[in-house]
Design a binder for these strands. Structure first.
Lengths: 233, 233
DNA sequence: TTTCAGTATGTACTAAGTACACAATTAAAA
DNA sequence: TTTTAATTGTGTACTTAGTACATACTGAAA
């Protein structure tokens, strides 16, 4: 077997543009939201699109995703996870472009959207029907990813205020999962997990009996071993 | 906001080669195996590498992965799943190459490796220390992906013969997860799932009391609704 | 002071997970 | 032919987690 020179080999490879698209979820008013901008492509005039950009020649795709998040929202210390690559040859009207979808969750109240270029704003996920490119498919994939993730990891807390009531937490889960949960059992579940810190504070400005406020005990969570065995299908 | 022409926009994008790498797991002799070839790059002379190839200009990356699997093993109807994109700018010595890892599981006994180009053969996953490119990292990521997947989906059955004993099934889980399981509880678990069909046949040629043979009831599995709610972290 | 909206909590029941022990079966060795 | 080794096959007591459901409490506003 003749050995090959790497540079000569790679020079022969077909080349194509690669982009990242960020699906940035937020939560407000008991609704799951996603940040979108107006597409600036002729073909998709008036349609909404995810926040994306090309991956530069010497850039990690993770880094490109963080760059997009920073450039579009100004936030830097937020959870970001690669979800999936999308590659249909006709997915971009301008030619072959492969994109890698990233998912991010942020607290709407923490970020006041100073930058509103391209009509950047929050949309209710449930009311989005059509989008530019294959972005609806990417959004749906990320939504399913999120539904799975919030059940296995304490991701949802990134979407809530620092101090939250159990009601808000349950609303978040119900909104993301799209189902109703029994309030008593939901509270019992989190009580037995013992990962919420009771702040001995009460909700303010609610038109009814205020609930207690909690924060998530990330320190305890990070120290506790994950039990990861559980065959179930 | 001035609207842009798609083709003009894409023409400006930086372009780079994209490849797929397939991590093909098998199971034999109570060991998790993976199919590797000898790298044909000068820089990695003598080192082992995953089965990969470039993605062609108008090809879906999924399709490229199936093509690699077919070209290298001759198998066409096998489970294949995208795992993750790897993009370190220096991961390929010949220049910037992004790769998307795919994972596949196949029954070693079903495929006799007619094609043995580049010294293609099965390696014990546990004994692999170093590989060409970032392939060890990709392999590790896929192994973790597999560990998670076999607990949530009946993937492991693709690695076993059509007819298998509960002992073989348990060996598979123990090998992939790297832990010991209680035999009685393991059997009870699968008994209550009620997804194994008792074939009323016995193992042959074992130097001890033969066990019953089973097959997985894919039909029943596919018809049963997934219960997917279960907050737990 | 009553009503409203929502918080807070408990209990009985069911299902699933865990730890553990012994009898039955086959092949092979004595 | 008997014994031994290896492994299959099963059951029970206990603990933990999940589910369904009802009532009392609190604060704000009418």
């Amino acid at each position: 077997m003749p050995l090959k020179n790497g540079a000569a080999l790679v020079a022969e490879y077909p080349k194509m543009p690669v982009t990242v698209d960020c699906v940035i979820f937020g939560f407000d008013d008991n609704e799951l939201k996603v940040l979108l901008i107006r597409s600036d492509l002729e073909k998709y005039q008036g349609m909404w699109s995810l926040l994306g950009d090309v991956v530069n020649d010497t850039e990690e795709i993770d880094a490109a995703a963080y760059r997009v998040l920073d450039q579009r929202t100004g936030m830097t210390d937020i959870y970001l996870d690669q979800v999936k690559a999308f590659s249909h040859p006709k997915r971009h009207p301008g030619g072959r472009v492969i994109t890698v979808a990233y998912c991010s969750l942020l607290n709407i109240k923490h970020h006041s959207l100073q930058i509103t270029e391209n009509e950047l704003h929050w949309h209710n996920v449930s009311s989005i029907t059509e989008m530019a490119f294959d972005h609806k498919e990417i959004l749906d994939t990320c939504h399913e990813w999120l539904q799975k993730m919030i059940q296995e990891h304490p991701l949802g807390f990134n979407l809530l205020p620092d101090k939250f009531s159990l009601r808000e937490l349950q609303n978040l889960y119900e909104a993301i999962l799209g189902i109703q949960l029994d309030r008593r059992n939901f509270r019992k579940k989190f009580a037995t997990m013992d990962l919420l810190i009771d702040l001995d504070e009460m909700e303010q400005d609610v038109p009814h009996r205020p609930g207690k406020l909690y924060k998530f005990n990330f320190e305890k969570y990070n120290k506790s071993p994950r039990k990861w065995i559980g065959i179930d299908f």
